[in-house]
Nucleic acid binder design. Structure first.
Lengths: 214, 214
DNA sequence: ATAAATATGGTGCAAATGCAACAGACAAAA
DNA sequence: TTTTGTCTGTTGCATTTGCACCATATTTAT
């Protein structure tokens, strides 16, 4: 199996990866865009790593509204053992935004040192560590944005994160207006209204999906 | 140094821990309740583990409002390399709720395999992995709550998490009303108002800090 | 090219939330 | 005990947000 350059197996030779996979109860799958890739339900694999593609962790409320809980990119780790847990309140799923390649794993097997068969298991653990710390940093950012009390503050906080990451006050939004609203967990038309008002107040400039913080 | 039973060094003999500490650039500190323990600023230790006590990661907005970003308990890991990053928008600090004992560490040194001096370094990495995955699970829960759109839904989501954890529909709130509001990132009086209305609607019962989901 | 479907921007109105202020409860300190 | 300070519950009012529409732009399918 060829995993090319991905964070999970970086530094481990392909033939050694092959020997490790059974011991992790690993199974690789491909999904087309728009497909449901994973549900946070018991009986599902406890962990998964996105090898290729983009996907979103979304919750559909009984009211019909949707929330984007997390955006996944190659190298992202997710699963019932790691992040969300299904509440009775709504169902949480992972949906592919683009065609995706995923590796499902047994989380318990992954983190415990295994008997002998896997000489590179500890390299794997190091890699998972790097992936997990990135994840908690991203979730921390998410908490920062969502804990802002007004739509304007949520937008400003999110924009300043993007600006920080790109190192420029001008950046491209990775979302459509609808998805951005679901990501910030606010009403779409209220958000558009607020964006207009922020433009009028001279806080931002915006053309299409290109935003500049002023 | 005696770290008793804490997650970071579990499974590692005390004398071996002592030999590892310098290589992690570790320094232990004690703080009284109410004290500022850590700030998310450059120049600070990149990681820290709470050994004893309880603490809160809080942000103070320029508007004066406060947000509790995370609640830390013994075994929690935090720090600039791992979760929040200082935005221009407000300052993020860790404040002791009770007297605390903290271990500051160099995160980079901690996760990289070191030359030779530390035979148990890989056990340490395994332990950090467990701590980190718990952290991302907690942050995921936090995102679930904060992404609820109304105060009522935030409360219900948080209550059902507590109910889930205790395995009972009756549980004790770990917060005062003021802190709960800052944790849910909503106005305190609006929250109290909503709690009353939920009681009237027969959704919950409440006496002091004891809540029952109905 | 045309039609259909979907995304965006906008508005009035209702509902939810925030804010300020106050009184009583409770706890800590003198 | 009294005093002081903090927490809680409550209310009226201003502001924000959500919601239900609609019109137009943009994309996708036929």
């Amino acid at each position: 199996m060829n995993f090319e350059e991905n964070q999970l197996f970086s530094g481990i030779a392909p033939d050694q990866v092959d020997r490790m996979l059974p011991c992790l109860e690993a199974s690789r799958r491909d999904y087309p865009a728009g497909k449901l890739m994973y549900s946070y339900l018991s009986g599902q694999a406890s962990a998964a790593v996105l090898l290729e593609g983009k996907a979103s962790v979304v919750r559909y409320e009984s009211s019909g509204s949707r929330t984007i809980l997390e955006s996944l990119s190659p190298g992202s780790i997710f699963g019932a053992g790691l992040d969300f847990h299904t509440e009775i309140l709504g169902s949480v799923h992972v949906i592919c935004d683009t065609p995706c390649r995923v590796l499902f794993l047994n989380y318990e097997k992954m983190i415990r040192p295994c008997s002998s068969a896997c000489p590179r298991h500890l390299d794997l653990v190091q890699n998972i560590l790097a992936i997990l710390s990135r994840k908690s940093r991203l979730l921390g950012e998410r908490v920062e944005v969502l804990s802002q009390r007004s739509i304007r503050d949520k937008l400003l906080c999110y924009f300043s994160q993007l600006s920080c990451k790109t190192g420029s006050s001008t950046f491209l939004l990775p979302f459509s207006m609808m998805d951005l609203a679901d990501f910030l967990s606010v009403n779409r038309s209220a958000m558009v209204r607020e964006l207009r008002s922020m433009r009028e107040d001279g806080l931002i400039a915006m053309t299409k999906r290109e935003v500049t913080l002023l």
